[in-house]
Computed example of a mutant assay.
Amino acid sequence: MPNEPFVEAAHALIRGEWFPPLILVGERQDNLVCLEGHLRLTAYALVGFPTGIECLIGTAPTMGRWAR
């Protein structure tokens, strides 16, 4: 089943397991995208975004150009 890894990760969170930090990047802190950790981010969404999600954040004025 294609969604199984996401459901398994959500169950891991419910059991209290810890995930490595998400890596978020953008031009400013109020406009970030997930660079690494999409499965973990989806699992957090499935369990209602608990507080205390650890993230590494990188910002740079030219960050928006990386995908062009």
Rank of each mutant, 00 (worst) to 15 (best):
I53C: 13
L22H: 08
R65I: 10
L35R: 01
A67H: 10
A10V: 05
V33C: 09
E27V: 12
L56M: 02
V33Y: 07
A12C: 02
L22M: 03
P21E: 13
M1V: 04
T59L: 02
A45S: 14
L22T: 01
H11V: 01
V25S: 12
G26M: 14
A45N: 13
Q29P: 15
G16M: 07
G26V: 10
P50A: 03
G64H: 04
L35W: 00
L46A: 02
P61Y: 01
T62N: 11
A60P: 12
I23W: 04
E36M: 08
M63H: 02
M1L: 09
P5H: 01
Y44D: 06
P21D: 08
P21S: 15
P5K: 10
L24F: 11
T42C: 12
H11I: 10
G52Q: 12
L32V: 14
N31P: 09
P50I: 13
I53P: 11
R40K: 11
V47A: 07
V25Q: 08
R28E: 05
E36I: 11
I57N: 02
E36A: 11
L35I: 03
P2H: 04
V47S: 09
L32R: 04
D30S: 11
E36Y: 07
T62D: 11
E8Y: 05
L22E: 04
L39G: 10
R40G: 02
L35C: 06
R40S: 03
A12P: 08
M1Y: 04
L46T: 05
F49L: 15
I53F: 03
I23C: 05
W18E: 10
V7A: 03
L24K: 06
L22R: 01
